[in-house]
Design a protein around this nucleic acid. Structure first.
Lengths: 233, 233
DNA sequence: ACCTGAACACCGTTCAAGT
DNA sequence: ACCTGAACACCGTTCAAGT
């Protein structure tokens, strides 16, 4: 997407006089703000992936000079932190919705989490490496509270939360990167298929081949929760 | 580490005559080879992290001209693929070692996998995004075979493998990135502590605070395997 | 067959300067 | 207070050329 930038003709920098569109007027754009920067960063990441986010490109999308961002934001790193937490937007569900079996509650929360990350495929691989923003902490708190209410002792909570976290992160990061480019997927499958004689069990399991990602995610999660339920208290 | 590069004096490119050390002689170095490139890339990644790997820097370490690598390797991407699989070096254990309880076998394999990745902290976050090389496939095959031998039906193998994979990846990628820089860790903990009143359950679980990573990994893994064992056949 | 430097089109960030 | 361009020290990769 994102119309190919017209080979920037910076030949004559005499914009002062007849510059056809100043930053402000170009869509009746608001002035720069942290909010606008973060929202645009998320869009850019959605459209172009992690490598596509560039301070210059981001500023361009905002109709701002290349260096203007640095007044609002410390770093490119900081932009990643903020975009990540924004992508994981989370509002706690109404109390009423929590009346079900706790297992079902946990599954719902984690499926929501996963869907959210899959909508922003760059987010999964960023999450474990970056600061934990309020949205992420909010999700963790809700998960913890659900487990605690279900009877998991405080001493076991740490393990339980991390196990579920690990599972969701691993599943989502893998999934997000496997179906991103069909080229890669085709190549990976071909490679797997090509080497099958050396990996007979992998072949029998049809690993990577018919991928009911959603069902697999759910089933594995059930196993994990089952383990937590029988031993976890 | 890595002695600061002496501000490259490329002023006078008349190396032809008295260049004091040609590429070949500079440690009695062998000529370039894919093997040497990959090994050096792993070293560089270990020392400087993902962002520290640069084609130019890599060539420098090899005592080669900046562009020489491109004869042996297609891409920087390819270097990552090769370095990753090299870091996950795997030789199947002797059959005799597999006589134990299958649960114990699985735990051992996954702990070895994890330790291996923790030795090269950049590898965990790379693994889910890159091609599956022979070492990775070898590990997956061994895991599959162990599960299969334990009685997991072919139809359930896919879920079982992915669940374990997800858990190991998630756990390792998180761990590798949390204790990498003490600054970040301190900051993360401070942030968590600072926001505690809003996240009471997280506080009670002491999430992130006293981190017995190894024990937590093991316990969560036991839960997952327990779940697989009771429902997985 | 193997290696090389110059060159191109990019990066993130500093800084002194504009309004 | 907010925004800017020029400049610096880097990138990955192409290409025409050397041995």
């Amino acid at each position: 997407m994102a119309a190919k930038r017209s080979s920037t003709e910076t030949r004559k920098p005499r914009r002062t006089v007849s510059s056809p569109q100043s930053a402000q007027q170009r869509n009746g754009e608001q002035p720069l703000s942290l909010q606008r920067i973060v929202a645009t960063a998320v869009d850019l990441l959605d459209a172009e992936g992690v490598d596509g986010l560039t301070m210059r490109r981001l500023a361009d999308r905002l109709g701002a000079g290349a260096m203007s961002l640095y007044w609002h934001v410390e770093n490119k790193e900081k932009v990643f932190d903020l975009a990540l937490d924004a992508a994981l937007q989370h509002r706690a569900p109404p109390q009423a919705a929590l009346a079900l079996d706790w297992r079902e509650d946990v599954v719902r929360q984690l499926e929501d989490w996963r869907v959210c990350m899959l909508r922003h495929p760059w987010s999964a691989s960023l999450l474990p490496r970056r600061a934990l923003g309020p949205n992420i902490l909010g999700r963790l708190e809700l998960l913890s509270a659900t487990l605690s209410r279900a009877g998991v002792a405080d001493a076991d909570l740490n393990v339980a939360i991390w196990s579920l976290w690990n599972y969701v992160i691993g599943a989502t990061v893998t999934r997000a990167n496997f179906d991103r480019s069909d080229d890669d997927q085709a190549a990976a499958q071909k490679r797997v298929t090509g080497l099958n004689e050396r990996y007979p069990t992998i072949e029998r399991s049809r690993l990577l081949l018919d991928s009911d990602w959603d069902g697999t995610f759910r089933k594995g999660l059930d196993f994990l929760i089952g383990g937590l339920a029988t031993e976890g208290k």
